[in-house]
Amino acid sequence: MSVLVYTESEQGQLKKSALEVASYAKAVANQLGTTVTAVTINANNTDALRNYGVDKALSVKNTALDNFNANTYAAIIQQAAEQESAQIIVISSSADSKYLAPLLAVGLNAGYASNVVATPLNTSPFTVKRSAFTNKAFEITQINTEVKIIGVSNNAFGLVESSSTISEEEFSPAIPESKISIESIDKATDKVTIADAEIVVSAGRGLKGPENWGMIEELADVLGAATACSKPVSDLGWRPHGEHVGQTGKPVASNLYIAIGISGAIQHLAGVSASKVKVVINTDPEAPFFKAADYGVVGDAFQVVPELIEKLKAFKAQQ
């Protein structure tokens, strides 16, 4: 009956989002008066979960699972849910979790609510609040099935510490044969990815050309942030397509989003407005982004950004 949470790892390390969904699962378990079981796939170490209220960890270890595969991962989580008779399954909003969730929902005949932004409003009937209309509204959704899947929006709940005595069990589910084989992976491993980043530094056409991205990367470096860009910037080939954020690009739900030389067109804002705090740096005080931002600097990026880098370096040195 416990709440089951899928805690993702990357190269053996639990992701920060895993701790966030564990925190969320703990809050739901408290509402229902039950415990939390986490399922991990090839995580080296599940110790961190004891700080976020997880009572039991089911650890799957198998080198055949080193690369993500939606079908096999969904099958594993399904078997964990069945073993634990879990009625609530909590997952993150990572691209991988969003890929496997619909397959899991079919497997368990479970209602699935994605982009959920808060703990359940009510547990009977079971209702959750989720973002819809590309962050322009919230929808209150009732999940009617016995088994329910909740996809938690990134950074919506945050990390909430709660210590527990965790027991770890090896879990060896049946692994179905995959009909999808990976031919190649082309991935920068040394960079913070937009999906995982707590801070995203994003720049637009106001930067004039690709040669000016050095300062954007430096700013991102100082902040431990991922870099992103507006659509025209990737269309012009100034930056790789994977950096394009917005309605037609990657969604961003970071804690801090810094928009530099980006006007704030509605299609751009639609994809980034789930970020908690937004800062805009733009020469034009009339740029629409100022209406959507929390903090703004009216100024030339070529002056403001280098100076901001210096100030942040000084700040970091003091910390």
Binding site: A105, Q142, T145, D294, Y295, G296, D300, E307, K311
Partner: peptide, 24 residues
């Protein structure tokens, strides 16, 4: 499996806090 019960709009956003470019 799920039903849409109602909708809410986000609370109106407060005005942006402007910071001078000379005072980062």
């Amino acid at each position: 499996e799920t039903s849409s019960m109602s909708f809410e709009k986000p609370a109106p956003k407060g005005a942006v806090t402007l910071v001078s470019a000379d005072n980062l």
